[in-house]
Nucleic acid binder design. Structure first.
Lengths: 204, 204, 204, 204
DNA sequence: CTATAAGCGAGACGGTACGTCGCGTCTTGTA
DNA sequence: TACAAGACGCGACGTACCGTCTCGCTTATAG
């Protein structure tokens, strides 16, 4: 009974889809998401505006889609292989891989997606679902192992531990100036670890 | 020799200024900064658009100005009076005052100003200058005293300590869902304090 | 290679076009072309400004278009049927038809289009092409026949003869006050005819 | 009891006045009256807008004032000295003096003042009073003498005769393209004279 | 010989309209 | 039915001038 019929994904043209995603991500990196427009994406992809609107609800969604896809390609190389016995070392590896190697040169895209999602709850949800949640789950698992090992205090909520680390990175990305490089990631993890380690004297 | 002359602040009409700031902040709270327009601000303030553009470069700047001014009025009530001997207690008081009592009900304005500042470096600079820096300076001073007291490890950079706390608050505001209330502030400070206290073993 | 593509006339919406033309002419008659605005036309036609700008370069062009179209509808009724044997009588009929019956109540629109065309060469060209030239051609033909008949001196340029007549009408319209009615048209033609008739004595 | 007092002409600053008139005329000649603005005049004259509005009601009035003043300076050289016995020759001299020598290079200013006066009745009145009427009176006098001489038919209204001539010049200025030079002035007068001369047969 | 009322420069102000951009919906024609 | 193309109604952009106003400064009589 709906007036506007839902599009049929089976008939979706993959070349068109790829062209749109590439145009969107390219423009976001070149001029910033804020200055990207759907008209611009469509023109650059050689596509009608209608076609963009058919498959995505907003420019943020297109760019998130394109960007997340690129991240996923970069991602599955390492992460779960980073499994030495030393939790702090592993943590540094995991965070560096995610923040430096994977996100790396597209940090401004990340920043503008977070910005955009402040007034677009759907985008915010998509963002968390596609980026925050998977990354978090992976690290949470490792933290739980570290708690079993006794390398992390048992009374700490793994998700709060993750917040403690990522919050610092996002804070530098979004709020204050300052380096956000490999050395900083190490510092971030070290500062966090001070609070995560079991209190030694407690057992004495 | 300049084509566009700078306006003379001495001739600025204070009633007009106040009307614009009030309109801007009101609209930002009601419909969100993203949907605020300069046209709308001007209309609501009963003012020509030109008058807004004469004194502010962007809608973000107007809203930041209005909001910061409101915060400053709320602010000078407590902050520096929060001086018991217990650093952790003081810290909780200071952060609660800033985050709950002062910012409190205008958190969405804060979020959208940070969002806007992702593609507006001037706004970002203004934001840091008017909000981040003063709040930071105050807390940094207290941390230094706590280091002298031995309540905070001497090898910690006070600014990193502040980041450790505020980053958590901003992370919940901007990136992940979750309560951001008084109880959370306490938790944030407690988690941070775990890492800030001097390592007991060092003296042994 | 062109930045701004030309719009495709085939996709022009005829209802929209008609609404714009009607609005434009209506406003020009009611408040005068000088106080007509494109914004106003668009609003009255229930149309976006963009749509007006897409098809016409200026408000003068819209009004000229609307007005000329109306004149053309009024026109094809008579003009060429005015063919008695008496040239002066025919001339009076033709000019009255054009100036009184056709232009008649829209004289102020004519005046303001001429005014506007003083600083808009494109409009001036359009105006001549759509109004002056066709009217002139028709009368010129009749004058040539009168010259063959011996009712008009053979050594006179038909276009100068037409100027002699129309110039008087436009002069009253644009420059000096005074009636510009049916009686005046007769007077204008009579005064012109004094100079157009063959010099009688020449043959004696 | 009037709220806004009339300005006192005795206290008017002649330097200011001159600067405004010069700026206005200069701009009208350079960019056309249509693109002249009161703001522009004031800026170029180094004068406050208020001062312009104090003494003139519109930009058209300023430019007319400046232009008429210049014409008056140029004018009193000849006109009434053009008094040979031959009316046609005198007429040519008078019209050439007015149209070629006096108005000459400022014809576009004349055109735009006539244009402007289509929607500004005050300007229209000023224009006729300062330019049309004096020029007309002078020629009318000479025509009356020619009627007494028998060089012009007695049954012709001198003002209609003047219209017959000037209308042709204004028509070329305002409505159609074509030369408007010395040769054309001669042609205009000659064509008009065909109709103005007494009908020879009348005496038979 | 002051003082008080212009004229004047400067330009802020509330407005209206400009001409442009991008939105999201729509229609048309092609494959 | 997906798609390229783009017209359309709409709302906002940032700018230009409008004509009025308020501010100090200067200038020129009138007390």
């Amino acid at each position: 009974m709906s007036t506007t019929r839902a599009p049929d994904p089976a008939r979706r043209n993959p070349h068109t889809t790829a062209a749109i995603l590439e145009a969107a991500l390219g423009m976001a990196r070149e001029i910033g998401l804020a200055r990207v427009t759907i008209e611009g994406i469509a023109a650059r992809a050689g596509v009608g505006k209608r076609t963009v609107y058919r498959w995505w609800p907003s420019k943020g969604a297109v760019v998130l889609d394109a960007w997340a896809q690129q991240l996923e390609e970069r991602l599955h190389r390492r992460l779960d292989t980073a499994q030495t016995g030393d939790f702090e070392a592993d943590l540094k590896l995991m965070v560096k891989d995610a923040w430096i190697d994977t996100i790396g040169d597209t940090r401004s895209v990340l920043a503008s997606i977070v910005a955009e999602s402040q007034h677009d709850p759907d985008l915010a949800a998509q963002f968390r679902q596609r980026l925050i949640d998977p990354a978090t789950a992976l690290v949470a698992e490792r933290i739980r192992r570290a708690q079993a090992d006794g390398q992390v205090a048992a009374d700490i909520d793994p998700y709060r531990a993750i917040e403690l680390i990522y919050a610092q990175l996002y804070y530098r990305l979004l709020v204050v100036r300052g380096p956000n490089d490999e050395a900083y990631v190490e510092d971030v993890v070290e500062l966090a670890m001070r609070g995560l380690r079991p209190t030694r004297r407690s057992g004495a």
